[in-house]
Design a binder for these strands. Structure first.
Length: 849
DNA sequence: CGATCACGG
DNA sequence: ACGCCGTGATCG
């Protein structure tokens, strides 16, 4: 069997490749030379720890020694308690300067650090902060997003670990960051790491015999990881799997299958057998993609997915990076994509250049772009790429074979190592393990199917809509011409027109202190000048028009839009949608016909209907459930309109009227305040919204807290937990489930602190609601697939699920989906759903169940 | 590439 | 200065 080493030569840290240089006290290599008193030298005894910090502050500059200021002293104290051996201290750059150091300081100073490294002969290296990591490794690793990351360098042929830590100065002003630093320092000084995997190799499967041997290995441990590299866009006919690789847990041999082998039924058969066997445990990183690659290109539907390291990572560390490049740092394999990345960037440039050339030529010669694109690309050695497609999706096909296979193999190895790490972490954290098993894993299995079904769309309708919008936009721009020659898409130019040329006054400033052009602000100026309503309409139409191109770009060969559903999209646990985002399409508004037209572009296939079920006011129900307030629960269970009931509860106190006399305006006020409470709005903003004084706003809020007495107590409890532990929890079946870091709650900065305080309650509400949506999605797709129900779940929209169902089965599926969405241990009776049906998404009508 | 805006829940 | 969570387009 052909063997391909994943690392033909052991990778080197950048610092090892730099020629060491004796410290130069007259150094003028970067701009820091101008302001320094002295050059801060390294100090300490060789043969133990090497601590690399960022750069000197005032104290260090005054005395020429590293780490003697306040945070330096803290670092020395922390080290003293934990490390009895020798220590050398140095910095990524050695001269003091006010403010941020110049961009080239780290690079210019690197030879001096290389000299320190040579002399220090460390057994362990600590890199404090991103610049220290940058200095040693030459790559950007944000240490807070990559906690417990490490890398390797060599000392006389012996591997020396470099541990990534946040900079101790970050902890100076935040007790949680201080805790993170101290925990990670303890780890960095004591961790025993597995040796670096530089001798790992890929074995290229070519025969049936090879395949049997590979499968035997893959079945010999608890689970295996797999990963696919491809060219083209999934769900298009030109999509090709270039290679796939597989690795058994704990092994450093990766089994590699190339395109021809995958297509060879005889050789692929053993792999197909284990991939489709639900009893063979397996997983990957963002594995829904790899599953769909096998399903689409090889008609091989993977069963038995038990892990996805990306989802596990985001569940365990929501603020950590979920990109494999970054997660590779957690297993000492950082930079594993660099070799291929550099070449892919070049290939993408080439592809885009060729396309640009083709476009330019077709314009001058007034003919079809596509034809020339094909021609030009072919001349340059590329295959045609559809107009509008991302060139990167095709770039992997042009990588040299060995680079591609190494890339794929390393990805699989990183994933395999991560699966062990995350599996252990998950087994140790009970709340996250519960929610993983009950909600996230089932939903992950479901999501790959949802993406495969895809959202039906009427291309003709989109084209017509785009034309209509172009026409309207043309008219609006023509009208705007009378007020000058400016671009209505440019905020600065619009602001200049409104506030300088037309003499209007900006109702408020943007965060950056500039006059605003926001719709809410312009709404206030609507009657002040005839240009304002035209600008408002233009802005709306322009965003709507933009969506058409995005949709058209993303229609695949099966006529559907396969949006990406990201289960790790939001830190509260909500799923997001991207490429394109189908969760933010304008809602039909009777006053603006073009809004309905947008959703009407999505048409159910002949003989089927769209069926939409959405949770009624789920966030208020969560508030009642979480706080346990009896009055709130009574209102929810009674089925009375929640805001009306709230208005009635406070009517005597607020307006001195009987509950029976509560009218629409009262309800509207109650609704606004309920809303404000849910999101932790300040009384000032609430007053703004209600157009009343801050004192009055406070009074309504207090009246509601008086009606629902346990609600303010619960809000305060969320904040207390966040202040004490630096986290906010979502809840599942009455127990904490997902944990979101809230360390900014300890910030001195009022803005960050109050944002985090609001976030603590909001995370519990929004996040716990999300658990129900995600859980029901998992349950329903499972039912559809296993029971072969006639339905497709095509889009989750936070608190709603959209299905495509053959007409005769609509009621049956609606009843079943409703059942799944409202049957949960403990609080199913609190949940209610609305049901709507229609041929077009913009024209749904209520269905009485 | 950050700031600003617009859309959804 | 004060609303949470997202994605995407556009501008400078």
């Amino acid at each position: 069997m052909e063997r391909i080493p994943l690392y033909p030569t052991p990778p080197k840290a950048l610092i090892e490749t730099i020629a060491p240089s004796e410290l130069d006290f007259n150094c003028g290599r970067c701009a820091l030379a101008a302001g320094r008193k002295t050059v801060v030298t390294a100090e300490g005894e060789a043969g133990g720890l090497l601590v690399v910090g960022q750069g000197p502050g005032r104290h260090e500059d005054a005395e020429g020694r590293p780490n003697i200021g306040k945070s330096g002293q803290y670092l020395r104290d922390q080290l003293m308690h934990r490390w009895r051996g020798k220590v050398v201290m140095d910095n990524a750059y050695r001269c003091f300067g006010a403010g941020e150091p110049p961009a080239d300081a780290v690079a210019k100073c690197r030879p001096f650090l290389a000299q320190t490294l040579k002399e220090a002969k460390p057994t362990r290296v600590l890199a404090l902060g991103d610049r220290a990591i940058q200095s040693l490794l030459g790559r950007n690793v944000p240490p807070l997003r990559t906690r417990r990351g490490y890398a390797w360098l060599y000392n006389d042929g012996k591997p020396i670990p470099i541990f990534f830590l946040i900079h101790p100065a970050a902890g100076e002003r935040n007790r949680f960051l201080r805790r993170y630093f101290e925990e990670d320092l303890e780890w960095a000084l004591t961790a025993q790491l597995p040796p670096p995997p530089w001798s790992a190799e890929a074995k290229v499967v070519a025969t049936r015999e090879d395949a049997e041997e590979a499968v035997e290995d893959l079945l010999s441990t608890d689970w295996f990881s797999f990963d696919v590299e491809a060219s083209g866009q999934l769900f298009n006919r030109d999509y090709r799997i270039l290679c796939a690789s597989f690795a058994a847990l704990g092994r450093e041999t990766v089994w590699m299958l190339e395109e021809e082998t995958l297509k060879n039924r005889e050789v692929f058969e053993p792999f197909r057998r284990i991939l489709t066997d639900p009893d063979v445990a397996k997983g990957g990183s963002g594995v829904k993609y790899d599953e769909n690659a096998f399903a689409w290109a090889l008609d091989c539907v993977v069963k038995g997915i038990v892990f996805d390291v990306r989802l596990q990572r985001k569940l365990l560390e929501p603020e950590g990076s979920g990109y494999l490049d970054d997660m590779a740092e957690l297993v000492g394999m950082g930079g594993h994509k660099q070799e291929a990345r550099a070449q892919i960037d070049e290939i993408v440039k080439g592809l885009n250049r060729a396309r640009a050339k083709a476009r330019a030529r077709s314009e001058t010669e007034k003919t079809q772009t596509l034809m020339f694109a094909t021609e030009t690309l072919a001349r340059l050695g590329y295959n045609p790429i559809p107009e509008g497609a991302d060139a990167e999706a095709y770039a992997y096909g042009y990588l040299p074979r060995d680079v591609l296979l190494r890339y794929n193999g390393r990805d699989t190895l990183v994933t395999s190592k991560l699966s062990a790490l995350k599996g252990i972490e998950l087994s140790r954290k009970k709340p996250q393990r519960r929610i993983w098993e009950a909600v996230v894993l089932p939903a992950a299995r479901a999501i790959r199917q949802v993406e495969a079904w895809g959202m039906p769309v009427d291309r003709g309708a989109v084209n017509l809509y785009a034309q209509y919008m172009d026409l309207q936009l043309g008219k609006l721009r023509a009208t705007l011409k009378q007020w000058g020659d400016f671009s209505p898409s440019s905020d600065p130019q619009v602001a200049d027109l409104l506030y300088n040329k037309l003499g209007l006054t900006s109702p408020w400033q943007t965060k950056g202190g500039k006059p605003t052009t926001e719709a809410d602000a312009l709404e206030q100026l609507r009657d002040k000048h005839p240009a304002v309503p035209v600008l408002l309409e233009h802005s709306r139409f322009e965003t709507l028009r933009g969506r058409c191109d995005e949709w058209l770009r993303n229609i695949r060969d099966d006529g559907r839009i396969h949006t990406s559903i990201n289960l790790d999209g939001a830190r509260t646990g909500r799923a997001s949608s991207s490429d394109p985002n189908l969760q933010s399409i304008v809602r039909p508004d009777p006053d603006h016909p073009e809004t309905k037209m947008a959703r009407d572009c999505f048409v159910a296939p002949p003989g089927t209907l769209f069926l939409m079920l959405d949770y009624k006011q789920i966030e208020y129900r969560m508030m009642g459930w979480l706080s346990g307030d009896e009055e709130m629960l009574k209102v929810i269970r009674s089925g009375v309109d929640f805001h009306l009931a709230t208005a009635q509860l406070i009517s005597r106190q607020m307006w001195g009227i009987e509950p029976g006399d509560v009218k629409k305006p009262h309800r509207s006020i109650a609704k606004t305040v309920n809303f404000a409470v849910g999101f932790g709005m300040t009384d000032e903003t609430l007053a703004d919204l209600l157009k009343c004084s801050v004192e009055e706003a406070r009074k309504v809020r207090q009246a509601i807290y008086g009606a629902y007495k346990k609600l303010p107590l619960y809000i305060e409890r969320c904040k207390e937990i966040a202040r004490k532990d630096g986290v906010a929890w979502t809840y599942w079946e009455g127990e904490p489930a997902r944990c979101r870091p809230m360390w900014r709650i300890a910030d001195e900065d009022n803005y960050n602190r109050s944002k985090a305080e609001n976030g603590a309650f909001n995370t519990a509400v929004q996040g716990s609601a999300a658990e129900f949506c995600t859980a029901s999605l998992g349950k329903i797709v499972h039912a559809i697939v296993e029971e072969k129900l006639p339905a497709e779940l095509v889009l989750p929209i936070h608190d709603a699920l959209l299905f495509v169902v053959p007409k005769p089965f609509v009621r049956e599926i609606a009843a079943r989906a409703k059942h799944e969405m409202t049957s949960f241990k403990g609080c199913g009776d609190l949940l209610e759903v609305d049901i709507e049906v229609g041929e077009r998404w913009g024209s749904l009508e209520h269905l009485e169940a």
